[in-house]
Each structure stands twice: as structure tokens, then as C-alpha cells.
């Protein structure tokens, strides 16, 4: 493997890990709202969350570019207040992945929240648990399988993210060139078939590894929960 290919692999793993960590808390929060509460604008929130799932990724990337560029509403504010620039950087790649993976995480967590036995939560309340302790000691452990599933889906979605990333943060080696972008670059250049094949092999190995790990973790969790 060449240094460039290793760099792409490293970037891909980093982006995907940061993506999962970053969306976990807000995804659980949104899933909670959607599963447990009725409020004005619920359908709107639901639609907004799911938009990246149905929009062409390039459109999402372009919207992000409009939002986060120096002249965009969010990007301008970030730059003026904190000196942070997201467009065309590593953090931008994480943002693109996060937006694309968010609906997958929300769906998985929401689904498992909806299957949580509310009678167990009622029992916990009679045993002195307020809302916060109830969440940490009963609800969260019970939805752990859903969180695991959501994390795997988000991680995989992030590893495969291409359209939104290349549109939003471009294809910069060492900064935003993840595996799919590196593969695309190699596929465009002549005499790079060996490198492209190696990247495909890495992608397959990574995917199999993730699937295997998730299967193992899911089995352990389910044994623990006695499902």
C-alpha cells in the first residue's frame, strides 16, 4: 500500500468515528422527541431529519456549502465568532458524513425506543427514579441494541459517503480525501488500476470487519438483555 492509500484509509476511519460520536447524542435526543412526544411541527422535524436520505447527496453537499461558506449564514458566524472554517477541511468532511448518517441513527434509535417496555419504566419510577435516573439506568440500557445498530449503520454510511463530501469539502489529499474519494481519483487516472483494486479490497475488508464486529456485539447485548 502506498502512503497516499494509507492516508485515505486513516482519514476514512477518523471521519467515520468522529461522525458516529458527534451524532450519537443529538440523534438519541431527536429519536426521543419523535418516539415519545407529540408537538407542533413534529412532521416537519421528521421530514427535515429524513431529507438527506431521499435527497441526492450532491444536493446536500451543495446546501452545506451554501450554509457553511465564509459568506453563508452559519459559516460566516462560525468564522467571525470563533475563527473556525469548516468548508474544505477535515471537520467539514465529518459534518457532511454526519448529516448523511443522522437519519439512519435516528431511525434505529427511535425504533428501539418504541419497543421499550414502558411498564419497566413505570416500575423504575415506583422505585424512586426521577426522569434522569430512569433514562440512564433503564431506558438507555434497554435501547443499547438500537444504538449499536444505528452506530454501525452510521459508520458504514460515513465510510461510503462520496457525493456530499466531494461537493462540500472537495477532494483534498490528507484533508478530505477519504477512501471513496481516493478510489474515484485513482479511477480517473491512467495506469492506476492496481491502486484502485487495493482500495476496493480495503473497503471490502473494512465492511466485513464492521459487520462481524457488530454481529458479535449484538449477540452479547442480546444475551445480556435476555431477548
Amino acid at each position: 500500500m502506498t502512503a497516499a492509500e494509507l492516508e485515505a484509509l486513516r482519514l476514512s476511519l477518523l471521519v467515520a468515528s468522529w461522525c458516529v460520536v458527534a451524532i450519537l447524542p443529538p440523534a438519541i435526543g431527536v429519536a426521543w422527541l419523535l418516539a415519545r412526544h407529540d408537538f407542533w411541527g413534529k412532521s416537519l422535524l421528521n421530514g427535515l431529519v429524513h431529507l438527506p436520505l431521499v435527497l441526492p447527496p450532491v444536493a446536500v453537499g451543495y446546501l452545506l456549502l451554501l450554509l457553511f461558506s465564509r459568506t453563508g449564514p452559519l459559516g460566516g458566524w462560525l468564522h467571525d465568532s470563533f475563527g473556525i472554517s469548516v468548508a474544505f477541511t477535515f471537520s467539514g468532511a465529518v459534518v457532511a458524513s454526519a448529516v448523511m448518517a443522522f437519519p439512519l441513527m435516528v431511525r434505529a434509535v427511535r425504533l428501539s425506543l418504541e419497543t421499550v417496555d414502558r411498564r419497566l419504566e413505570a416500575a423504575a419510577r415506583t422505585l424512586g427514579s426521577g426522569p434522569v435516573r430512569l433514562f440512564w439506568t433503564v431506558t438507555l440500557p434497554l435501547i443499547a441494541p438500537g444504538i449499536l445498530t444505528g452506530s454501525i449503520l452510521a459508520f458504514a454510511r460515513s465510510l461510503g459517503e462520496f457525493g456530499a463530501t466531494i461537493t462540500f469539502v472537495s477532494n483534498i489529499a490528507g484533508e478530505t480525501r477519504t477512501l471513496p474519494l481516493a478510489l474515484y481519483t485513482l479511477a480517473q487516472s491512467p495506469d492506476a488500476e492496481a491502486g484502485a483494486l487495493r482500495l476496493v479490497a480495503i473497503s471490502i475488508a473494512l465492511a466485513l470487519l464492521a459487520l462481524f464486529a457488530s454481529e458479535l456485539a449484538a449477540r452479547r447485548l442480546q444475551a445480556r438483555l435476555g431477548v
Binding site: D117, R119, L120, A122, A123, A124, R125, T126, L127, G128, S129, G130, V138, P141, L142, A144, R224, L225, G226, V227
Partner: peptide, 20 residues
């Protein structure tokens, strides 16, 4: 008063032990 603060023990028909 919230159930958590009532200090009333409740044994349910269906047990409701925490599976985790």
C-alpha cells in the same frame, strides 16, 4: 407527588424485573 417521591412499594402482576 411524583411516583418516584411517594415511597410506595409496588409489586406488579407481571413482575417487571429489569432484564439488563
Amino acid at each position: 407527588v411524583a411516583p418516584a417521591a411517594r415511597r410506595i412499594g409496588y409489586v406488579f402482576q407481571d413482575g417487571r424485573l429489569f432484564p439488563h
